[in-house]
C-alpha cells in the first residue's frame, strides 16, 4: 500500500519546521521500498511513524495509507491493519514486563511464526536463553531484540522501525538487519526506519532528511 504525505505539519512542531523533505512537503513512500528517515532528536521521527500508525492525530495536512486518510480509519480497521499490514518496532519497545519473552512474542495478534521459528531468530540474535525469562529481567539490548522478533512475527506490507538498533552494538545490529531482510524479502515488504544520523547497517536504504 502506498503511503502519501501531503503538507503534514504535526502540532508540536509547528513553530520549528526545518528545511527537510517531509514536513509541509509532498512525500510518497512507495510499496516494497526501504527508507531511512534521518534527523536529530526532537525533529519528529517517532511522530511521523506514530501519525502513519494511527496513534497520533494532532496534525494538519493529509496522510494517506492507500486510499484512506489515516485519521479516518476506525479503531477496528486499525486493529486489522496492525495485525496484517503494518508492523511496528516501537522506540520504547512496549513489552509486557510481567510476561516472558516467548509469551510477549506469541501474544502478538497476527503472529504466524511457529515456536521453532521464534527460537531460530532468538538463537540468531543471541537471546535464545532469555525466552523463558520475564521481560523485566532482561537488559535493554535483549529487550530490543525480543521486540524485534515480535515485530517480525506477523505478516506485513510495511515494517516501521523506530531507532531499531539504539541499544545494540554494531555486530548485533548487522545480525538484526539480516533477520529483517530475511523476513521482508519474501513478503516484498516496505521498510520505514528512523535513525539519529548514522547510517550503520542501512546501506541500501533511501535516505530522507526530516
Amino acid at each position: 500500500m502506498k503511503i502519501h504525505l501531503h503538507h503534514i505539519i504535526p502540532a508540536p512542531l509547528k513553530e520549528q519546521l526545518g528545511d527537510g523533505s517531509v514536513w509541509n512537503r509532498d512525500t510518497v513512500f512507495e510499496p516494497s521500498a526501504h527508507y531511512l528517515v534521518r534527523a536529530d532528536s526532537g525533529k519528529g521521527k517517532s511522530t511521523l511513524l506514530n501519525i502513519l500508525y494511527g496513534i497520533r492525530k494532532d496534525y494538519t495536512g493529509h496522510a494517506n495509507y492507500g486510499n484512506h486518510e489515516v485519521h479516518k480509519i476506525s479503531d477496528d480497521e486499525w486493529s486489522k491493519i496492525r495485525s496484517l499490514e503494518i508492523s511496528y518496532l516501537f522506540q520504547d519497545l512496549r513489552l509486557f514486563p510481567a510476561l516472558t519473552a516467548m509469551e510477549n512474542i506469541q501474544l502478538k495478534p497476527g503472529n504466524i511464526l511457529y515456536k521453532n521459528e521464534i527460537e531460530y531468530y532468538a538463537d540468531k540474535l543471541g537471546v535464545s536463553n532469555q525466552l523463558k525469562k520475564p521481560c523485566s529481567k532482561l537488559s535493554l539490548g535483549q529487550q530490543q531484540r525480543i521486540a524485534l522478533i515480535r515485530a517480525l512475527s506477523q505478516r506485513f506490507e510495511w515494517l516501521f522501525l523506530d531507532e531499531p538498533f539504539s541499544h545494540l552494538d554494531k555486530n548485533n545490529a548487522m545480525i538484526a538487519m539480516e533477520c529483517i531482510m530475511e523476513r521482508c524479502g519474501p513478503m516484498k515488504a516496505g521498510i520505514l526506519a528512523t535513525s539519529l544520523g548514522d547510517q550503520n547497517g542501512f546501506d541500501h536504504f533511501q535516505i530522507i532528511d526530516l
Binding site: S79, R94, K108
Partner: peptide, 13 residues
Amino acid sequence: YEIQTLHWLGFRV
C-alpha cells in the same frame, strides 16, 4: 499501559 499497548499491537478494543 497494558490497555494502550494491546491496542497498538493490534487487539480490538
